[in-house]
Nucleic acid binder design. Structure first.
Length: 689
DNA sequence: AGCACGCCGACT
DNA sequence: GTCGGCGTGCTC
């Protein structure tokens, strides 16, 4: 028998191997095969009697049995086609490889006082075990550190075996107090509507302001599904949001759900994936990669904050949007898809108005009161006088302060003295300053502008800008020397657990954070949220800049005043009249949507067209992109660019955008059956430029 | 993606 | 004379 095996290499076609008589393999099995001078894991995507390869075949050497069901294999096949990536590579990155679970962090499985008593009795006979318990009592949770104690490795193993310790499943030890929640009528109506859609593949948009109880609606719907023996998936855009979701789900469902996300240790990922495969997992919470979990009898997939760009995998192939994958699963496996947001993606809301999704509105806030939102000029200060005054006021009342910065300081935009952001005359996308030729470039159409005058005041001298989180942290410490200041962004992600716990306990007065902090975190002590530079996001070279700005402000407003204290939000902006900022200040999504939709239509951006982003990389990226553009234009594609991008790790890059109708991806797949290795093809990109 | 093979600059 | 830079090409 011949096994056709997808291998973790860019090439699309599978490789044929001989299956020796003592092994039996089926489609979906993981196999160990010789490949060149080494061995690799592959996944069987077909079996046949005759090979398609003419050369000499090598044997399959081992198998670990099923790694995914046929439905998931089909799903990943579809994703690999849509994102112009070989099936083998897509499978290797989406189905976790076999790995033994090994605790990375441990915690006490007993109340601390009991543990102290046990360690006292152990002190004479098993001093190593006592030392481990004492160390944990002192706050050490890392398994690696505990292993370094004298005899620590073995002692930890014994304690895990005895059940005194247990592996910590989440990179965060968030605890929430019990509270009983009664649904209001809008929430009840939403749960009823969703319940009717479980198993039918219906799609819903749960639309409501922060604190309107969207999470409770998903959780009650999950419970309804469980009662009918259906499994569920709950997705959040960021790992940092999982602990709260996990804790709340455990409380509503009666038992804790499984977790699945990229940073989970390999053994844990494998365990959850195989639990799902065997039908043992009934509910899982996770980030975008969890949308592929092979849960059996899937009844519901919910995406919280569905407009968040983190749902799209764009940095690494295969490129996919968790929402699109959920909808593909709905079509083949029938789960209801529930999208929830206070500020949905414009595309999603548009689809709801077109009847593709059922709109379920939750108009009322059930947690806290709407914070007061005000706008303040930033001028040349990082933290302007009005925000400074507000921080003083809240610190004085023992409130906590969150200072947000969208950390896209990567781009250097240009502002005129009259405070308007300079935009491309054709695309209305903000221009990006390139130091190499000291010119402003449009990353959408490729135009380079050297002699530009501000369209609103005619001035030709501009100010370049970009502020980072470190600078904000530094300013906060300088201005408020007696406050405890912490910073949470991609650089400090390893300390996330510690920092978030300290915030929850009120030990940090000012938290400076990038995007990740802005989403559904729920800290009752935070009474003031300051958005340091709302204009910076507006200047990103992307047609979604307005949408992101609205989402940022709306999300931040949702962070303030979730507890007893009334909340306040101060947005620093020098363009308070710009529609995205104005409507966000008023929490008026409908007004934002109306204006944004008009802009999208007049300039033919999604949802009125579909974009495919192509990035050429390498020495003559621009020339190659240019030749490709010529070729595609000849085949009657609409092509924007090529535009020169900033080099990445010293390697030049150039971008093309192909614009078309819904069928543009299929047409491109026909035109470029196997894109060259220097070209990345990303349909429906979330980030341009 | 690896890893080999292959053809040109600075070193024991 | 070699060690080694990373450019192309192949792996059932």
């Amino acid at each position: 028998m011949i096994a056709r095996v997808a291998l973790p290499i860019p090439r699309a076609a599978p490789f044929d191997y001989e299956v020796p008589p003592h092994l039996s393999v089926a489609v979906g099995d993981r196999v160990w095969v010789p490949f060149g001078t080494r061995h690799v894991w592959g996944i069987v995507v077909g079996v046949a009697d005759e090979p398609t390869f003419a050369g000499r075949l090598l044997p399959v050497e081992a198998t670990t049995g099923p790694s995914l069901p046929a439905s998931t294999l089909d799903l990943i096949k579809q994703i690999s086609d849509l994102s112009f990536v070989g099936l083998g590579l897509a499978l290797a990155r989406l189905a976790p490889p076999p790995s033994r679970a090994r605790a990375r962090e441990v915690e006490l499985a007993l109340p601390p006082d009991t543990a102290v008593r046990i360690s006292a009795t152990l002190a004479s006979r098993a001093p190593a075990q006592a030392r481990v318990i004492i160390a944990i009592g002192e706050g050490v949770t890392g398994a690696a550190e505990l292993r370094q104690l004298p005899g620590g490795g073995r002692a930890m193993g014994t304690l895990l075996h005895k059940g005194i310790l247990r592996p910590r499943r989440l990179p965060f030890s968030y605890q929430e107090e019990e509270k009983t929640i009664t649904l209001n009528s809008a929430q009840r109506a939403a749960v009823e509507a969703i319940q009717a859609g479980i198993g039918s593949g219906k799609k819903y948009l749960v639309f409501g302001p922060p604190g309107s109880g969207k999470t409770e609606v998903y959780l009650r719907s999950v419970a309804e599904g469980l009662a009918r023996a259906k499994t569920s998936l709950l997705l959040a855009p960021e790992v940092s949001l999982l602990p709260q979701l996990w804790a709340r789900a455990g409380r509503v469902l009666g038992s804790p759900p499984e977790t699945y996300f990229g940073e989970l240790p390999p053994g844990e990922r494998w365990r959850t994936w195989h639990g799902a495969l065997r039908g043992e997992v009934r509910c899982a919470v996770g980030t975008r990669s969890a949308v592929f979990l092979p849960l059996r009898d899937l009844g519901l997939v919910a995406l919280d904050e569905e407009g968040e760009p983190a749902y799209k995998q764009e940095d690494m192939a295969p490129y996919y949007h968790a929402r699109a994958v959920a909808e593909l699963r709905a079509a083949r496996e029938g789960p209801a898809v529930v999208l929830g947001a206070a500020a949905p993606a414009v595309e999603t809301f548009y689809r709801a108005t077109q009847g593709e999704l059922e709109l379920l509105s939750l108009p009322d806030r059930v947690v806290g009161a709407r914070p007061t939102v005000s706008v303040a000029p930033r001028g040349d200060a990082v933290i302007g006088p009005i925000l400074q005054e507000a921080i003083h006021r809240h610190l004085g009342k023992r409130g906590q302060v969150l200072l947000f910065l969208n950390r896209l300081g990567f781009y250097t935009g240009a502002v005129c003295r009259c405070r308007s952001i300079l935009r491309c005359p054709d695309c209305e996308i903000p221009l990006v300053f390139h130091l190499a030729d000291r010119a402003l470039h449009c990353h959408t159409c490729g135009k380079a502008v050297r002699d530009l005058r501000c369209p609103s005041c005619g001035e030709d001298r501009f100010h370049l800008f970009g502020v980072g989180t470190e600078r904000v942290e530094h300013e906060a410490r300088r201005l408020f020397p007696s406050a405890t200041v912490a910073r949470l962004d991609a650089d400090t992600v390893r300390d996330r657990d510690r920092i978030l716990c300290a915030v929850a306990k009120g030990k940090i007065q000012i938290l400076v954070g990038a995007q990740m902090v802005g989403k559904g975190l729920d800290f009752p002590g935070i009474s003031l949220v300051g958005i340091v530079n709302a204009d910076q996001l507006l200047s990103t070279p992307d047609f979604r800049a307005g949408e992101r700005t609205y989402q940022l402000i709306a999300g931040a407003a949702g962070r303030a005043g979730r507890g007893e204290r009334p909340g306040e939000v101060v947005v620093q902006s020098d363009q308070p009249g710009y529609y995205a900022i104005r409507s966000a200040l008023e929490a008026d999504y409908a007004a934002f949507y109306a204006e944004e939709l008009g802009y999208r239509e007049s300039l033919r951006y999604p949802p009125f067209a579909r974009l495919v982003r192509m990035i050429a990389t390498g020495r003559d990226a621009e020339a190659k992109a240019g030749a490709l553009a010529e070729d595609l234009l000849g085949r009657r594609f609409e092509v924007l660019g090529p535009a020169r991008l900033f080099p990445r790790r010293g390697i030049p890059r150039a971008q093309l955008l192909v614009r078309g109708r819904g069928d543009v991806v299929d047409r491109l797949a026909e035109a470029l059956p196997q894109p060259p290795s220097w070209l990345k093809v990303d349909p429906d990109p979330m980030w341009l430029g």
